[in-house]
């Protein structure tokens, strides 16, 4: 028999609050180690690229940010779905906590891409399919957060924004492919150097470490924001007296 009690315990704010606090320490430590190694090895140890020189090193920030921009959205949508189906308030708190982090990573991916594009492509911005779909993703995040703030009632904000997150996640592949299709008709294939299949190990390992490290960073940030959300939502609950010391 499968033990389902863990699932029910997830509905309890005190339990989640304490678990998040405990996990946060671990996630922060892992993120620090992995990102620290990845950035050091990537920025100082890895050899410069034969074509791009040192400019390629922005990949150690750019690729993890782009990866997380999508992972945050899927986390948000799954949490929103769980909240909508099982009416689990904590799941809505996870979705609410995830959105600003995801928007920040999306912005960071766009920013680093643009900084990289200046020396490589000669412009800050090209209407490349990846850049454009990343930009639309940022708009989706902004719409989600705007909808959330437009309600006075928290339950209603939770559930309405959950519907939007799910609609968005159905639409994301369509947006992605439409942008690729549009792009392939407008201009020839852009020089995407990241498509290069082979990468020497001295470049690849730091990148993988950064990918994993950024994921842990996201998890740590999510714990911080989730605890803040729980504090906000449960501010009148009596269990908080035993957890938070008032100053």
């Amino acid at each position: 028999m499968t033990d389902w009690t863990w699932f029910h315990r997830l509905a309890s704010p005190p339990y989640v609050y304490r678990t998040a606090a405990r996990l946060q320490t671990w996630f922060t430590a892992l993120a620090g180690l992995l990102v620290g190694y990845g950035l050091f090895a990537g920025l100082f140890v890895a050899p410069p690229d034969y074509q791009q020189g040192d400019a390629f090193r922005i990949i150690y920030i750019h690729a993890p940010s782009a990866w997380l921009s999508m992972m945050c959205y899927s986390t948000m949508a799954i949490a929103a779905g769980v909240g909508l189906i099982w009416r689990m308030k904590i799941a809505h708190a996870v979705a609410a906590a995830s959105a600003p982090i995801g928007a920040s990573f999306t912005f960071l991916a766009l920013l680093t891409g643009s900084l990289w594009g200046r020396p490589m492509w000669g412009t800050w911005w090209v209407w490349d399919a990846r850049l454009t779909s990343e930009l639309i993703l940022l708009f989706l995040y902004l719409g989600y957060m705007a909808l959330r703030t437009s309600f006075d009632d928290r339950t209603r904000a939770d559930r309405a924004s959950a519907v939007l997150a799910i609609v968005g996640v159905i639409n994301l592949p369509i947006i992605h492919f439409s942008v690729y299709w549009w792009n392939s008709l407008h201009q020839g294939s852009t020089v995407m150097k990241f498509d290069k299949p082979s990468m020497p190990a001295s470049m690849l390992w730091p990148l993988l470490a950064c990918l994993l490290g950024f994921s842990f960073l996201y998890a740590a940030l999510l714990c911080v924001r989730l605890r803040a959300e729980i504090l906000l939502r449960e501010r009148n609950a009596s269990w908080l007296a035993g957890v938070v010391e008032l100053r």
């Binding site: 989706l140 705007a146 909808l147 437009s150 939007l164 609609v167 369509i174 439409s178 942008v179």
Partner: peptide
Amino acid sequence: ALTLASRRGGVLLSLLILPLVMP
């Protein structure tokens, strides 16, 4: 439908819908 109960409808509505109808 989503913006029915919110305080400001118009601009928010376009913010939500425009990214979704770009395809």
